[in-house]
Nucleic acid binder design. Sequence first.
DNA 1: TGTACATCAGTGAACGCGCGTTCACTGATGTAC
DNA 2: TGTACATCAGTGAACGCGCGTTCACTGATGTAC
Lengths: 222, 222
Amino acid sequence: MSTVGRETPRERYRAQVRAEIKERAWEQIAAAGAPGLSLNAIAKQMGMSGPALYRYFAGRDELITELIRDAYRSLADTVRSEAASGADLAGLGRALRAWALQDAQRYFLIYGTPVPGYRAPDDITAIASEIMEALLDAAAHPAGDAAPGTDDGHPDARLETHLARHRDWAAGHPAQPAALRRALHFWTRLHGILSLELAGHFTGMGLDPAELYDNELRHLTP
Amino acid sequence: MSTVGRETPRERYRAQVRAEIKERAWEQIAAAGAPGLSLNAIAKQMGMSGPALYRYFAGRDELITELIRDAYRSLADTVRSEAASGADLAGLGRALRAWALQDAQRYFLIYGTPVPGYRAPDDITAIASEIMEALLDAAAHPAGDAAPGTDDGHPDARLETHLARHRDWAAGHPAQPAALRRALHFWTRLHGILSLELAGHFTGMGLDPAELYDNELRHLTP
DNA sequence: TGTACATCAGTGAACGCGCGTTCACTGATGTAC
DNA sequence: TGTACATCAGTGAACGCGCGTTCACTGATGTAC
C-alpha cells in the first residue's frame, strides 16, 4: 500500500534528479536534435559518471520514450485546459501555436520525422486521443450546425459524408459531421503551417506566418 | 574546355558508382532514417572498403547534402513538368501526393524535422524557389480572379491584403493576390495532411487520408 | 539514544562496437610518343 | 603496335572518438531493534 502524497526524502531526491536528467536531455535535443541525445553527455553535464543514470532510466530508449510522453502530456494539458475554460477553436489554435513556439524540437518529437521502426506505447496513443477529444469539444461548441448533407452544394459536403461514416477516431464523441470536419481541418491545416514555420521554411520569404495562421483560424470559426 | 556529352568510360564508371552509393544511401535512410546513414555500412553493402567512398564524396555531410539536393530536384521536376503540361492546382496536388507516397523518408528529408545547426546551400534554396514558381503558375492559371480587396466580406480578404504587400517570395511573379493565397494554401494545407499521413498519425483512426486530401484540393480550385 | 543491518546512489574500470576519416600503398586503366 | 609514364580506383591498417551498457565495489542514508 503506497502512501500517496507522503514522499520520503529519498523519493523526493529521486524525482528531482530524474527531472534534471530530462531537463538536460531537452537542452541537448534543442541543440542537436533527438538523434544527438547521449546519456553519457547528460551525465557529464550533471557532473556525474555515465552509469549513474541507469539508476533512473533503464536506458536511452526509455528516456526518449519518456520525453515523448511528456511532450504529448504537455500538449494535451495545454489544449484541455483551454477547452475546459470554454475556448472555441480559435482559442485552442492560439494556445497550440504558443505551445509550439516555446520549443520547436518538442513539437517535432511528436509531429516530426518518424523513426522507421518506432512504435509508441499504448499509453501515449491514449494521450493523443485526449488531444483529439479536446479538439472535438471545442469544435462542437458553437453548436447549431447545419444537419449533415443538407447544404449539398458546399465543397465540404462530400468530406462530411465520409466523416459521418468513419467516425471511429472520434471515440463516441457526439459531434456533428461539420464539427468533425472542423476538428480535422484544425489539426491538419494548423500543423501544416506550424511545422513549416518551425522548420524555417518561411524564413527569407518576407511574409508573416502568424498572418497565415490567423487566416486559417478564421476559416475554422465561422 | 570540357567536351560536354562526350563521356569517357572512366567518367561513366564514376557516375555509375556514385549513383549506386546514393541508392544504397536511400535504402539505409528508408530503413533507419537519415541519422542512421553510415558511409562504412554503405561500403560494406557494396562489397568495398570504407575509405573507397572518399573517392566519390568528400565525406558524410557532402553525401547527405547531395541527397537533399536530389530530393528537392526530384520534387521540382515532378511539379514543373505537371505545371508545364497545363495542369491546375488539383493536378499538381495529385502529383505531389504520388511523389510523396513513393518515398516517405525522401519527403521528410525536405519537410521533416530540421537539424538545428544545418543551413542548406544556396543552390538548394534556388530549387525550392523553382517549386514555388511552378505552384504560382498553376495557381494563376484559371485567371479571371476578383481584384484584390474587392470582395471585402470573404474570410481571405485580410490575408490577400497581406500577401499583396509582402510578395517578395513570389520573386516577381505576376500572380494576383488570390493566386498567391491559393499557392500558399496549397503548400501549407497539403503539407499538413501529407506529413501527418506519412508519419502514420492517421493509422488506427479509420478514415481515409486521400479523402481529406481531395477535399483540400477541391477548396483550392473553385 | 545507540548499535546492526539493509537499502540504494554513485564510481571507476572495462567491454565491444561502429563511426568518420587519414595515409601509404598496390594494381589496373588510360595516355603520349 | 609497343613501350614509358601518368592517372586514378580501391585496399588495409590505423587513429581517436564517443557511444550504450555491465559489473563489482564504496560510502552514505535510512530502518529496526
